[in-house]
Design a protein around this nucleic acid. Structure first.
Length: 602
RNA sequence: GCCGACAUAGCUCAGUUGGCUAGAGCAGCUGAUUUGUAAUCAGCAGGCCCGGGGUUCAAAUCCUCGUGUCGGCACCA
């Protein structure tokens, strides 16, 4: 097998460059190693550009990098390119690949490059961002592209690829700029890997919470109701209620007090908080008589009003209020996405009012709380500290102090995090908890936000040791983030196979014949007494059919009851999670269910 | 919001180049059957073909404006 590049000092250098500079190093062969795929996919992006250029001669090209899930190329043409054109482009790519053009490299000066690509305003745009004096050009057949490589020695090596998505993308990732066309693709060294990859994508799609939510009747959306407004169906309602009650206990244990603010508040308050100015475009407003009201997009103002209801002593801090707060946000239509992004959702929101010297311990307590829940569900998550955004309230100095406080808390406890510059809330920096969905997209769930600004704007205070007035610090936090998004993620995580303690229905009861229905009902009542939901499958269908129907709901446990069971006071269990069948006495069975439901506490 | 695609029964989908009363499976209802661990049989019902507007002798099919959904971009729990 021929080498396609070499690795020198951790860098991938293609054969063209290595030859030119006389470099030697560890050989990289065409296989599915990360290094090889990097080169292969980059060259596949170029091959795609070559095909696009031949099909759409006026096409101009921006950049075509390798990304986590393959590669893409951004370009612009006067023609309308749609999904249907991907096949055509793939075909053209294959026909070029068959010609086995070598990929040649040469260097020219920046001025020469500008002259060469003078008709391609996108390439000129790319060059503006390159500081060096000279640039390299890669040539394959008639097609030439400005690129720093690395590339394969020959396009004939590209055989197993697929163009996967087409979409628009803003030039330079800035919505103020023009929109280009982006085509995504994937490439592998062999046919099997490509096939395996496509199969894996199809498998992931089966876990999509939108599909499962529909199948399992958890929730729905209706055109006539409006985009982004989920409707919770009974099964989803039960699942959600279980989460809510578990979480309620967890909050009480940690000293949180349940409170509730109104759904909408006078606009003057939103002006005081800064939401009106900084978040107004995401809010819904209405009028009552002459006064303007804003429907709450966050719960903090309500909780501030709770805090203001009485005077506080330094001895009482921290004070923690929590609420399953329903919020409304005007998300852009294109952003809506199943339960992951909706316009009305419920946060498991809380606000901690504390002294400056309590910040760190409070942050860490919340981080532990988050970890407790995430590990219960066996989620891999990552944390990210988001700093001051473009639109923000408060002095830079205050932002600096609070951002540093978050970092300190994390560092002191040796917690790993990444930085998201400019990703903070308008009133303070935050630690975001991100979870990955079935197809690898990351979603922010929990969040911990440190806020010196709202206490200042609302002139909050508590009495210190010397009876002086001191301003408290506010920590905004949500663990799940929102029930909507979290349940969406949970659904994909378990592929609908929810564990007993959270499942919409704990047990499906299948009576063998009509005469066993009564006993089934008795059992069902006993289950309710131990806080377990059950469903009786007594329809006029065959036993097999009813077991099949029950199985398809993904219920964790099915019990079959017939003469045998009634006589012996037992149940025949079919455990969907362990795929086992066994018998238990009724008493043992109820105890087992009770244990399984109670084994989880946050 | 932007680029592109899509919208047919509760669900999953057929529906030829525009051409008669728009089809199927599942689910639902009625009856027969009373079942021992993943689909018993028969019958019935179910549709403003997403919504306006247009082209045409004729529209589920073509055009147009909405609405919703999907894939991305941008934005964000």
């Amino acid at each position: 097998m021929n080498e396609i590049a070499i690795k020198k000092d951790g860098e991938i250098i293609d054969t063209q460059t290595a030859k030119e500079l006389g470099f030697e190093g560890e050989q990289i062969h065409l296989d599915n190693s990360p290094e090889s795929l990097e080169v292969l996919r980059h060259s596949t992006a170029h091959l795609m550009a070559q095909a696009i250029k031949s099909l759409y001669p006026d096409a101009e090209f921006y950049v075509g990098p390798v990304v986590k899930e393959g590669f893409y190329y951004d370009f612009k043409t006067s023609a309308e390119v749609g999904e249907g054109d991907l096949k055509k482009i793939e075909k053209q790519m294959l026909s070029f690949a068959k010609k086995k053009y070598p990929i040649e490299k040469y260097e020219i000066t920046m001025d020469e490059a500008k002259e060469k690509f003078k008709d391609d305003h996108l390439k000129l745009e790319v060059m503006k961002r390159i500081p060096s004096e000279t640039v390299s050009i890669y040539k394959q057949g008639e097609f030439e592209d400005l690129c720093r490589g690395p590339h394969l020695p020959n396009i004939g090596l590209i055989r197993y690829f697929k163009l996967t998505k087409i979409s628009g993308a803003y030039l330079g990732g800035d919505s103020k700029n023009e929109m280009l066309t982006r085509i995504y693709g994937i490439a592998f060294a062999d046919k099997e890997s490509l096939k395996a990859h496509m199969t894996q994508l199809a498998e992931a799609e089966k876990r999509d919470h939108r599909k499962l939510g529909n199948e399992m009747k958890l929730f729905t959306f209706r055109e006539e109701v409006g985009a982004g407004f989920p409707i919770w169906l009974p099964a989803g309602g039960r699942l959600r209620a279980r989460l809510e009650s578990l979480l309620f206990k967890a909050h009480r244990k940690r000293g949180y007090e349940p409170v509730r603010g109104p759904e909408m508040l006078r606009s003057d308050l939103w002006k005081t908080s800064g939401h009106y100015q900084n978040y107004g475009e995401n809010m819904y407003f209405t009028h009552i008589d002459e006064l303007e009201f804003g429907v709450k997009p966050m719960n903090c103002v309500g909780h501030i009003k709770v805090y203001e209801d009485e005077l506080h002593s330094y001895r009482d801090l921290p004070i923690k209020y929590f609420e399953y707060g329903v919020v409304h946000r005007h998300e852009l239509t294109g952003a809506l996405h199943g339960l992951f992004r909706v316009r009305e959702f419920t946060q498991d929101d809380a606000h901690i009012f504390c002294r400056a010297d309590q910040i760190e311990e409070q942050i860490i307590e919340v981080v532990d709380f988050v970890d407790k829940i995430m590990s219960t569900f066996e989620f891999d998550y990552k944390m990210m500290i988001s700093t001051k955004p473009e639109k923000a309230v408060g002095d830079d100095a205050v932002w600096e102090v609070s951002t540093q406080a978050l970092k300190n808390a994390m560092d002191k406890n040796e917690l790993v995090y990444e930085i998201d510059e400019g990703g903070g809330a308008f009133y303070g920096p935050k630690i975001d908890i991100k979870i990955t969905d079935a197809i690898g997209r990351e979603w922010q769930c929990g969040t911990i936000q440190l806020d010196f600004n709202l206490p200042e704007r609302f002139k909050l205070e508590y009495n210190g040791e010397e009876n002086e007035k001191i301003q408290p610090v506010m920590i905004h936090r949500a663990i799940l983030g929102s029930f909507e998004r979290f349940i969406g993620i949970l659904t994909e995580h378990y592929a609908g196979e929810f564990p007993m303690f959270i499942a919409p229905t704990q047990v499906a009861i299948v009576p063998v014949a009509e005469t066993h229905k009564e006993y089934a009902k008795l059992l069902s009542d006993k289950l309710i007494d131990i806080n377990a939901d059950s469903e009786i499958y007594a329809k006029n269908d065959s036993l097999n059919k009813r077991i099949r129907t029950a199985e398809k709901t993904r219920v964790p446990m099915i019990v079959v009851i017939g003469d045998e069971e009634i006589k012996n006071k037992t149940v025949a269990i079919r455990d969907r999670r362990t795929r086992e069948q066994y018998n238990l006495s009724e008493e043992e069975f109820l105890k087992l269910i009770q244990t399984k439901i109670n084994e989880v506490n946050f």
